[in-house]
Write a protein that binds this DNA or RNA. Sequence first.
DNA 1: GCAAAAGTGTTGTGTCTACACCCATGT
DNA 2: ACATGGGTGTAGACACAACACTTTTGC
Lengths: 230, 230
Amino acid sequence: MVSDQQAKTCAHATLATVFQVRDNQLQVLLWQRARAPHAHAWALPGGSLDQGETLEQSIRRHLAAKVDVRELSHLEQLETRSEPNRNPRHWELATAYLGLIRADADPAVPSDTRWHAVEELPALAFDHQPIILGARERLRGKLSYSNLGFALAPATFTLSELRDLYRAALGHDLTATNLQRVLLRRHLIQPAGSRRQPGRNGGRPAQTFTYTNHILTITDHFATLRPPTQ
Amino acid sequence: MVSDQQAKTCAHATLATVFQVRDNQLQVLLWQRARAPHAHAWALPGGSLDQGETLEQSIRRHLAAKVDVRELSHLEQLETRSEPNRNPRHWELATAYLGLIRADADPAVPSDTRWHAVEELPALAFDHQPIILGARERLRGKLSYSNLGFALAPATFTLSELRDLYRAALGHDLTATNLQRVLLRRHLIQPAGSRRQPGRNGGRPAQTFTYTNHILTITDHFATLRPPTQ
DNA sequence: GCAAAAGTGTTGTGTCTACACCCATGT
DNA sequence: ACATGGGTGTAGACACAACACTTTTGC
């Protein structure tokens, strides 16, 4: 069971799909590879796991080379990929994470690194394309049944601003009216007390809101087949 | 980035939380460790990843030592654990899987292996207790928003049998009446055409049902914040 | 007839979408 | 005044839980 320990070990990498809503689009942070394999293809930020660190420490360390990690408003593990040929050079597992950055942040990024609209992804290295699409599905689900919107929105926002963020992330239209009612009913947002000045064309000043809680909370536990009331 | 490849590699194990509803309880398959670390504690089945295999191949191979893997009606990846001290002997990551076995199967298991009610877990090795509880949460969620019940139920069943399975897995009571309507409305189950003979105390013969689809299907995609109708 | 188990009818509740309408501001 | 954008009121659709009631069997 343990004749040759080295032969059984395997490189392990961490990767992150970091999303931010920019220009009313859901965008993902990618860097362009300079060398083979997949030279010139775009890739998710990440790198190999160091001895003694956890996966989360690892991905935070690698992300620090691309963005100020203090800007990360959310980070959670997705899946671990293990197809033997996912990396043509050597056997390597990769654990993917989902990271989110608030829309009002504008972190500096290195010159080889750019934001790309998820709707128009460039040619991607390795298995990074399915990882990004899976991350988007996770985000879309959690926006519906949790308070994860706090990780996309600025500290205070108007409801039309929030609707624009949800529209970009969910990929479909929705009304500020109904979004307000769903989030208020669930006590996910609350009025911030101030108002926003109208634009140059006038209009009623908008109320500002904040998320009541900046820790991930599931709000829709058992949507159905829920326990009896007593 | 690649000075000493060996120093950066790390052992990798796979584990599975295999559930089956037995005696109206949700039970998990555990084996009792004979040797340190954690001698005599109970542990999830699994073992180390072999060169060139995928994580899923690995867990299927290790499970084969405990149960007939043809009995596995469902297998999906959960999370990858990486706390450096999760194994006191050496640095080892572990990727956990959720496995399900239908209630009508009765697989033979080795002498060191037993089924344990999740409500009354024995002392567990490593970080296996939180893994089991996390697996149960995943199961409970998917029973609510997908057709995953097919992996717990026999090929054909009556509605009170199915209610007993759901009750054991969800951990709360529910009525066969409403369970039937939810699952029929969603077209997850359909009448199988036959009837079950009543017991010795009489009673109306029960209709039998089958799951319409034995592939995991999400039925409750966007419970809320769903796209406009047109 | 009576108990037991299965199944149907129906009501009430809560949550959501859709849409008409009202409010507050700039020009 | 009127255009613009924000916000409220309300009606309808739907899915679900709860529970009374009916059906079909064994004894």
